[in-house]
């Protein structure tokens, strides 16, 4: 059983029949099985002209520059970004750049140390699927999409900061004890 969550209308849904195979070392790549390949392997295949772009996806490590995928991002079905630890925030910036600068419209997947309490942040930065860490429960992780999700700044999914999208300055009456 895989541990993949996808976004449907902004909410998290368990993808039981996710088709992607994640590859982190040299394997025999066939066209019949869609894979998410390491960048160097993907580049080698691409250079050999095997039509890899429309079939296989690519994953980037946190040191990789997403700019290398800029010119071809329109052809890629999926890009995965790796969180070596959930405390390593580089993939948030990579995701944001792929969405806002390099025009990537396909599936953007978080892989690695992907945990419930960071999912809403990842969604903001443009991730659309999430490979939850193998020892964690998907139904628990799904709750990560329903909780706190308020920001002031803009994000990949909310291109305008709050002051441009919301008529600010309204005061609500302070809630009474009962209302709390």
């Amino acid at each position: 059983m895989n541990n993949i969550i996808g976004l449907v209308n902004g909410g998290g849904v368990y993808l039981a029949d996710d088709q992607w195979t994640f590859v982190d070392d040299e394997v025999w790549v066939t066209k019949s099985r869609p894979m998410i390949l390491p960048l160097d392997q993907w580049q080698k295949l691409d250079e050999s002209g095997t039509g890899v772009r429309s079939i296989h996806g690519v994953w980037l490590g946190p040191d990789d520059d997403p700019a290398v995928l800029g010119p071809i991002s329109g052809e890629l079905p999926i890009i995965a970004l790796q969180f070596p630890s959930f405390r390593d925030g580089r993939a948030y910036s990579q995701a944001n750049l792929l969405r806002t600068r390099y025009g990537f419209k396909g599936d953007l997947r978080a892989i690695g140390d992907v945990l419930r309490d960071q999912l809403a942040l990842m969604r903001h930065c443009g991730f659309t699927s999430f490979a939850i860490r193998a020892d964690k429960c998907v139904s628990d992780a799904l709750k990560g999409f329903d909780g706190y999700d308020m920001i002031y700044a803009r994000s990949a999914t909310t291109p305008e900061p709050l002051y441009r999208r919301y008529n600010r300055g309204h005061q609500l009456a302070t809630p009474t004890e009962e209302e709390r």
Binding site: Y92, S93, I151, Y152
Partner: peptide
């Protein structure tokens, strides 16, 4: 702007 800015919390 910096409060829960999702790109810059880690």
């Amino acid at each position: 702007w910096s409060t829960v800015n999702p790109e810059f919390l880690f």
